[in-house]
Amino acid sequence: MDLSSINPAVLIASLMVASVPIMLAAIGELVVEKAGVLNLGVEGMMIMGAICGFIVAVNTGSPVAGFLGGAAGGAVLSLVFALLTQVLLANQVASGLALTLFGVGLSSLMGQGFVGIRPPLTSAVDLGPLADIPVLGHILFRHDPMVYIAIAVVAGVWAVLRFTRAGLILRAVGESHEAAHALGYKVTRIRIMAILFGGAMAGLGGAYLSLIRVPQWTDGITAGAGWIALAIVVFASWQPWRVLIGAYLFGGISVLQLNLQVAKVPIPPEYLSMSPYLITILVLVIMSSGKGRKALNAPAALGQNFHASR
């Protein structure tokens, strides 16, 4: 065992990268859940974003087009969910699980000709003198643009939910769809827009995996990242800044377990690689034990379908 091989600066720098996909997917899902919709299809939307982004990037040679394609792929799949749950009023939990299964299968089919290809490279942002600061520069300022975009998205979601009328209406719809409807807000339309945003963010997170983090296409590339994103939303008690913390925490664990494996810690690597998921389960159990939904700050109408009957 040789723990000295773990460099804290490298560790922090790589956890910032590792947390981008789950951060994007989680912040998208947070908006969806704030609108009162529980979309368990995050994993499926992420993997669709991963393959769509990969195909577009390889064919155009442009990583930017790839990320846009990834977001579009996730959003299109989320539209299926929106159609099922908001228009046809299907059960949200079942539809979300089906969405994941469908996305994983479809992405595998679409990706058949793309195994083993390398995508175009995304270069780091040139932050000039900032990048030259000793230690800090290496940790914070030598990343690709998506690392900063993800943080900006979290900040944006926080600001919109907290300070704008659109955010207030979104929260109101998630709190009580009947009351929002009685006041004349278009519950279904607002929810569909939230679902699309969630899909696009999950797709963006997926594209980050296939274009930067891995970077290539393999079947099942997301490997449960979507489920971790779902857990982070609960862990964050539906607050955007806590999503950032949660994503860094889980990103950190997954990087640390790789480092520990390299450092030959005498624990079988299988235990180390299952640790992020184990911690996900533990967090969910601890957070949901005891005081019920009020303590958790969950949107009151979460997971309930709405139909304006009269």
Binding site: R171, A172, E175, S176, E178, A179, A182
Partner: peptide, 24 residues
């Protein structure tokens, strides 16, 4: 003024009022 169904429990009074106004 509704009999029920038009207030949001997890929002504060001002936010509830704002939701029922055209341009708060």
């Amino acid at each position: 003024v509704f009999q029920h169904f038009s207030l949001f429990e997890a929002l504060n009074v001002a936010e509830n009022v704002a939701l029922g106004m055209e341009s708060p």
